[in-house]
Nucleic acid binder design. Structure first.
Lengths: 195, 195
DNA sequence: GTCTATAGGCAGATAGAC
DNA sequence: GTCTATCTGCCTATAGAC
């Protein structure tokens, strides 16, 4: 019954813009780049996203929504806290394999050059990720699966920063292999001491 | 005897460019921005750095040299490995206090848009930092001051990534306070278990 | 070494035909 | 919705006077 989901032009533009933003940054691609890729003109893109700041806001909204959905799915699994953290790290590794970074990670580097709305969306993304991670490590510790000192929120911040930094560094230096080495240690910080 | 070190125009240009690059990225400032700040014209800057890629290369060379000098100084101190790691993290915190990021951290986000020479310099910076950190944690473990499993090199990568990521995230979300919380946990990963 | 002047290109954005 | 055509501004870079 349901017809195949033909991607709209707006979606195709968002797809192309997202890929480029995660590779080159928001200031690293132009309407002309996307227009060439999609075989349309820049005027067509302006019809769907009148200003580039609008495109950026829609980009972040979609990315954050999808990321939140992925976290909700992982959070709903009946598995250990360590396995959930592993799945979280896998989200990062998957984008690195495509030569990309986390959209909010790379945009955080351009933070000072971005419009106010995009800044707020980036902050909200980090806050949301930190909250999700804090819950996972807090519950994990309560269950005795994880072991760490201090506040869950601080532990969550360290995991978030460790993985964002590992993406940033490993894309330039070391690749997926070094990313995994760093990610493993970042997550092991909350693992129970070996008996 | 020695006259006061009057900063040359080239140095003033490098200073201004460095400050802007650490805040807005290499693609986030123009010759006109620096020219306005120094009350000169863009032609003057082109006289000292004929292409922007030359400016970028000189910027990275000077930054890496100064950073290496700071690491050599810290490495020469007669203090514990933990204290050396703390001093290392302090270098990062100091730039965050000025609203900046590590030059190579922010340029790593723009990596795919940068000329080949700058890419190589960024990679060399990360490799050099990793090597310095690896030595500190290796010696620290040998002395019984630090405790961690696995290769010193992997531990070094995790510290480097954790601090670079903490800078990136904390500038947008949480500020110096959250940076310290994350940095503390990153370094604590190699600390001896509390008795 | 620094200037004026300007070239040549690319950016984001708009008007109006189809 | 998509196009052609174009505007305006900013960018890197250069030529040549001082």
């Amino acid at each position: 019954m349901a017809s195949p989901p033909a991607a709209s032009t707006a979606d195709l533009i968002l797809d192309a813009a997202e890929r480029r933003a995660q590779s080159f940054g928001f200031n690293g691609f132009s309407y002309a780049d996307i227009a060439d890729e999609l075989k349309v003109t820049t005027a067509t893109i302006h019809y769907h996203f009148s200003a580039k700041s609008d495109l950026g806001a829609d980009l972040l909204q979609r990315y954050s929504r999808r990321f939140a959905e992925a976290l909700a799915e992982i959070g709903g699994r009946e598995c250990s806290a360590a396995a959930q953290l592993g799945a979280y790290a896998q989200l990062y590794e998957d984008v690195l394999r495509e030569g990309r970074l986390c959209l909010c990670g790379i945009l955080a580097a351009e933070y000072e050059t971005l419009p106010a709305q995009m800044r707020e969306q980036i902050v909200a993304f980090f806050a949301s990720n930190e909250a999700w991670l804090a819950k996972v490590v807090r519950v994990g510790r309560e269950r005795g699966e994880l072991q760490f000192a201090g506040e869950p929120r601080d532990r969550a911040m360290a995991i978030l920063c460790g993985l964002e930094g590992a993406l940033l560094v490993a894309r330039a230096y070391g690749g997926v292999e070094r990313f995994r080495a760093a990610a493993e240690i970042v997550l092991a910080g909350a693992a129970p001491a070996a008996a």
